[in-house]
């Protein structure tokens, strides 16, 4: 089931649709569509193994919507590519997509679609489209299901985590901090 959120501290009406898939078999096709710039495939397709928690994914969406709707300073083509870029702790766009975006080998995928007055998308439409185009198992989005996909060796490497964080909570907040790093330098 797709989940829809409205995020706090964004003064403009919006919605964030989040869907999780596992055992994907057509990741290469999805990536091809993204590269071709197919407007129907305007999603943030994230390799779910790099995601620690729901807050992690929502934080990236929040940053993107904030740039789109509040400050008007997107650094990439659109709000969706911006979500993938926001996950990265560095300013290297290519690297961000290679690490956090869908790759040919991706088997678990987190898809995010944002909706706002200029480009409204209903949850039902988004869900239907995703079910049509993604070959894989639709998984309920939650901290628990996301945690099952997390590849900690990747996360530790990508976010340069030096000190072992015993509590998952602390690892989560460290990741959130590192995402802000690309902004604060």
């Amino acid at each position: 089931m797709l989940r829809t959120y409205q995020l706090e501290n964004l003064p403009v009406p919006h919605e964030v649709h989040v869907a999780l898939f596992s055992n994907i078999t057509n990741a290469a096709d999805l990536r091809k569509q993204l590269i071709a710039g197919n407007a129907d495939f305007e999603y943030a397709f994230i390799d779910a193994t790099t995601i620690v928690s729901l807050a992690h994914a929502l934080a990236a969406a929040h940053m993107s919507l904030h740039r789109l709707l509040v400050s008007g300073k997107l650094r990439t083509h659109n709000a969706h590519s911006e979500i993938v870029y926001n996950l990265s702790p560095t300013n290297n766009i290519t690297e961000a997509f290679r690490r956090f975006g869908v790759s040919d080998k991706t088997t678990s995928l987190l898809a995010i679609k944002v909706s706002h007055s200029k480009q409204p998308h209903t949850a039902a439409d988004v869900e239907k489209h995703l079910r049509d185009v993604i070959q894989g198992d639709f998984v309920e989005v939650s901290d628990a299901t996301l945690a099952r996909q997390t590849d900690w060796s990747k996360v530790k490497k990508y976010y340069k985590m030096q000190v072992p964080q015993d509590r998952l909570e602390d690892a989560e907040t460290e990741v959130l901090g590192k995402m802000v790093m690309s902004v604060v330098g």
């Binding site: 934080a59 929040h62 940053m63 904030h66 509040v70 400050s71 340069k160 985590m161 030096q162 000190v163 964080q165 907040t173 460290e174 959130l176 901090g177 590192k178 802000v180 902004v183 604060v184």
Partner: peptide, 15 residues
Amino acid sequence: RSLGIPVPAVYFVDE
């Protein structure tokens, strides 16, 4: 925070 020093975690910055 990333060095394990007890300080509040940063969530978001709009500089």
